[in-house]
Amino acid sequence: MNDKSSARQIILVTGAARSGKSEWAEQLATQMDKPVTYVATAYRDPTDLEWQERINQHCLRRPPHWQTWEIPLQLATMINKVSPPRCLIIDSLGTWVSNCLEEDDPTWEQTTMNLLTSLKQSSVDVILVAEEAGWGVVPAYPIGRLFRDRLGHLIRQIGIIADVAYLVTGGHILNLSQLGQRLNH
């Protein structure tokens, strides 16, 4: 992992639901030995008790000295405002994409370009947690297909610019940057 004096990194942590993606991202952030800001992309819904419990479990796992920001939409704007030394964990891209599903295609393309530009220009470490939603059956409903396609395309775009990409699955962490070859398209 890099030290405080080295250049920033973009790190992508991807995998299935409940695979340990967030825990691995948190371990990576801790190893950087920098102040950490945890960026939660979820909307809180006090009427959804199961969702609240999931959020609470994430909160309990994080060190109390980490900052937590709830940013359900404006990721690019937030990334642009953060300065070193800092490490951001953005958890998760799947939730963020679902928050943006009402955007039409041109607006979504601009939103995506703004995020990618902010990541490329960022001067802080950014660890992005993303769900792999495209490994199952093609969703039967248009909104499900839209979500899967947008998330898959976004993960691919971030994977291309990431310094390191990890896949967390089956109780194992795979460094895709060491094991695989980068697809440049």
Results as ranks from 00 to 15, higher is better:
L116G: 09
N56W: 07
P142A: 07
W135A: 12
V13L: 10
W108R: 02
H185F: 15
A16Q: 11
T37I: 15
M78A: 12
P106K: 06
M32P: 00
I79D: 03
H153Q: 11
V137A: 09
D33E: 14
I10Q: 05
L179V: 05
A140P: 13
S118G: 11
K81E: 14
I55Y: 09
D104N: 15
C59Q: 15
A25K: 01
D125M: 01
A17I: 08
S177T: 15
I10N: 08
E70T: 08
G136P: 03
Q57M: 12
I79L: 10
I161L: 11
Q52A: 12
L101P: 11
W24D: 01
R54T: 11
T107Y: 09
P64V: 10
G144S: 05
C100D: 05
V36T: 12
A40Q: 12
Q27Y: 07
I158E: 02
W69P: 00
L93R: 01
A140M: 14
L28M: 14
G152V: 06
I161D: 04
P72H: 03
K21M: 06
T169V: 13
F147H: 13
T41A: 07
Q52D: 14
V164R: 15
S118K: 06
I89E: 11
P139V: 00
R62F: 05
V168M: 02
R150S: 10
T77A: 10
L174N: 10
K21F: 09
Q9W: 03
V124R: 02
G134L: 04
R86A: 13
R62N: 06
E70P: 04
I161P: 03
L60M: 15
D45H: 06
N56T: 12
C59M: 15
P72L: 08
G94K: 00
V129G: 07
G152C: 03
S177I: 08
L60A: 15
I10V: 09
V13F: 12
P85H: 08
L116M: 10
I71W: 08
L154R: 03
E53L: 13
A42H: 09
P46N: 09
Q67V: 10
G94I: 00
I173E: 00
D48W: 04
S122I: 00
R150K: 09
D45K: 05
N80P: 00
D3H: 13
V36F: 07
L128R: 01
D3S: 11
I89M: 00
E109Q: 15
L146S: 10
L146H: 07
V124K: 07
L49P: 01
G144Q: 05
L88M: 07
R44A: 15
S5W: 08
